[in-house]
Design a protein around this nucleic acid. Structure first.
Lengths: 191, 191
DNA sequence: CGCCGTGGTGGACACTGTCTACCCAGACCC
DNA sequence: GGGTCTGGGTAGACAGTGTCCACCACGGCG
């Protein structure tokens, strides 16, 4: 393994990313991560003074991955804004559904040190791009408010879909109709 | 106290409701609830075999309260659907903001026994009413999908607003513009 | 009187996060 | 080279958690 040669700090985060994908957020025990990294339970403390900081480092990987997929999905940025927004929404929901554990961790603010750790640095730029696209798609409206409402809509769909409430309530078996409905609603249907 | 005369079961739920309102969801320790109810830490087990079931009973109080406020807000049901929906949205968000701890508990599915405990019995009827109102407000669309998207939007706003993300992202200091934007989006603006 | 079941006690157990005393290899300096 | 110092990891303690279980007090009944 190449990763085993690198520092323990990275290895702990690697283990955490793997563990959260495999068994969910509640499996991210400090001691379990240390165990799987092959060190004693006190070792992580040297790099992460508290459990929250380790979890935050793991979550940041998730934000980075999501941001990467988002930039990949919007291509060179020349597509019509409505298409880029649809791609963004799809990416967001697919991430939430596909990486359920990581997504849960990323938005479990009681598990994260939301303060100085730069989660904001990763998610705010994403929102800024959202505002910019919304502004081009709906020049009439307050882009920040519409973008905020749209983001909240995506987040809500992701969350409620994640634990099956929307399937149960609407009888749907895929989130695509909901996504389309939300996009149509906030951006105007059609073009 | 009148409640101290009733059974322990009710008293535990009372204490839990009080505690979650006062100190948030992470304070709902089984042992702490027992302590504040004046019984030993093993006592709750007679009525709630597991911690999750006690938390679920507490959360059900929240769902009941929310449902009560919702029916109160829609009045006799003769107002135009758009107004009733606006009232519902306001009630939902005010509940989420005003009873932050309870709201968090209600949607922390890892803390709840989402199965056979009838949370669905309290929240599904609410969704049914939502579908009915949306169907009258937008006869053209698939009411269940639109209602699902709208619910997700409310939920998302509540969640993101709850931990300050939307204030930070949009610069708003009240959720009313976001709510209006969401309602306009899903129901069509104007009437 | 004796029995028994309902409802609560309190002590284990395994596990958690945090804190702290220790320790050991390697660098560095005189 | 010998001594010292330090970064990085060990391991044991501590308080707190949820769960399980052995016990028991007490009221109603035969």
């Amino acid at each position: 393994m190449d990763a085993s040669e690198s520092g323990l700090r990275e290895r702990l985060v690697d283990v955490g990313v793997d563990l959260v994908a495999r068994e969910g957020a509640q499996a991210l025990t400090l001691r379990e991560i240390a165990r799987r990294a092959g060190v004693s339970h006190g070792a992580p403390r040297r790099y992460f003074p508290t459990h929250l900081e380790l979890l935050s480092a793991i979550a940041r990987r998730g934000f980075a991955e999501l941001a990467a997929r988002a930039t990949a999905a919007t291509g060179d940025g020349t597509a019509p804004p409505r298409e880029q927004l649809a791609a963004l929404g799809r990416v967001y929901l697919e991430f939430a559904v596909g990486s359920r554990g990581m997504y849960e961790l990323m938005f479990r603010h009681d598990l994260l040190e939301s303060g100085h750790l730069g989660l904001r640095d990763t998610s705010l730029p994403l929102f800024v791009r959202l505002v910019e696209l919304v502004g081009r798609a709906r020049p009439d409206a307050d882009a920040r408010v519409v973008a905020g409402a749209l983001w909240a809509n995506l987040h809500g769909i992701a969350q409620l879909w994640g634990w099956g409430s929307l399937q149960l309530a609407t009888g749907a078996d895929h989130f695509a109709p909901l996504l389309r409905s939300a996009l149509d609603a906030h951006l105007g249907d059609g073009a």
